[in-house]
């Protein structure tokens, strides 16, 4: 069984931290506000990728190799998309 409780708790913490950084980015002037807003965006980018990585590890543990492979393929597609976007 997937340990969604732990993943949910991690995402809940990410949610609160992102919200705090977002408020800082929106209302604190100067470089501190900019850094806070940037941190918010970075967390928004990283969180879904971490979630897919978590699923892959969990499916490997469950012995669900077919979907673990699909999850890995998705991470590969995402990495390739990001790399191509940067190169272009």
């Amino acid at each position: 069984m997937n340990d969604f409780k732990l993943l949910g708790r991690i995402l809940q913490i990410a949610l609160f931290v992102t919200f705090a950084f977002a408020l800082g980015g929106a209302f604190i002037p100067g470089s501190i506000g900019h850094a806070s807003g940037t941190a918010c965006i970075v967390i928004l980018i990283i969180t879904p990728v971490v979630r897919v990585g978590w699923l892959v590890v969990d499916w490997v543990r469950q012995g669900d190799k077919r979907f673990a492979l699909l999850g890995s393929a998705l991470l590969f597609v995402l990495a390739t998309s990001g790399a191509i976007a940067f190169v272009r």
């Binding site: 977002a22 980015g25 918010c40 965006i41 980018i45 990001g82």
Partner: peptide, 22 residues
């Protein structure tokens, strides 16, 4: 996430507006 990575690399994200929207 992928789209934001691209926009960030292109410098198209206005951080203060993005933080407010977030």
């Amino acid at each position: 996430a992928v789209g934001l990575l691209v926009y960030e690399s292109q410098g198209r994200i206005v951080v203060s507006d993005a933080a407010l929207v977030a």
